[in-house]
Design a protein around this nucleic acid. Structure first.
Lengths: 127, 127
DNA sequence: CGAATGCTGAGCCATATGGCTAAGTTACTG
DNA sequence: CAGTAACTTAGCCATATGGCTCAGCATTCG
């Protein structure tokens, strides 16, 4: 399977309820494939595809001892998602702040001639 | 298009770089479809599918005035994602705390008879 | 050693996804 | 009013996704 350790794959992995549930269970500690599969009315090969997907996108890692494959949550992947969220928030907050500074500077330097332009610029930002 | 205002759709929408970029741009303020589409080397009908998807999953809303459709970011959708993250973290932190309390209580009440059981339980949690 | 357990590989299927082109509708402009 | 702008509809395509069954391999157990 191709590597999806990009944001695409990271979010794609979360777009399935089975996979989200698996992550939730692994939050409690490592578990075998069989144990993870038990709550789902799904054929094991199909379930394994989900496991493979989670592993290829960096959400879990697994290792096999004898017949038993044990899966472990990679908590750092949550930080990747949180990082993206923070980045988005930072972008829109930073842009809002910069817009206010820009408007303030314009008012200070030429208060009477740019009043209408400033209002139009604010209206544009708001619409 | 079917409503995807569930977590599946919320994450599925983020699984595409075009759609993530659109959200990033809208963080700066509302924009027209044409404006949003400009940076992408993509046919407009294809791009509109992305817009429709983002709207159906609650990431944006849009309205048309004349020929121009303007899209606006729904910032609350970020809270949905953050909420899911927090919930996961709370689950695994809560479970870790409860496990420690459980182990401690067992050691206090019957230190000598449960030592081996406690060690086995810790090993189970660790493996 | 045979039976049971726990995955694994391979192939199949229906549906969804992310793009395309062609054509059309509505609104705006000179 | 003709031409242009800004979407919108419809159909198509290749690939991916989320499931299935069948068969098989490796390990464990009695």
């Amino acid at each position: 399977m191709a590597q999806h350790s990009t944001l695409d794959g990271t979010f794609q992995a979360l777009a399935d309820p089975t996979r989200r549930a698996v992550l939730g269970r692994l939050g409690a500690g490592p578990a075998s494939v069989g144990e993870l599969a038990a709550p789902f009315d799904m054929a094991l090969p199909s379930f394994m595809k989900h496991i493979r997907y989670l592993e290829s996108t960096g959400w879990i890692r697994s290792h096999k001892v004898g017949r038993v494959r044990t899966c472990t949550l990679e908590r750092e992947r949550f930080d990747v998602v949180a990082g993206w969220l923070d980045e988005q928030r930072r972008l829109w907050e930073g842009r809002t702040d910069r817009l206010e500074q820009f408007v303030t500077a314009r008012e200070t330097t030429a208060r009477e001639t740019t009043a209408r332009e400033t209002a139009a610029r604010e209206e544009e930002a708001r619409s």
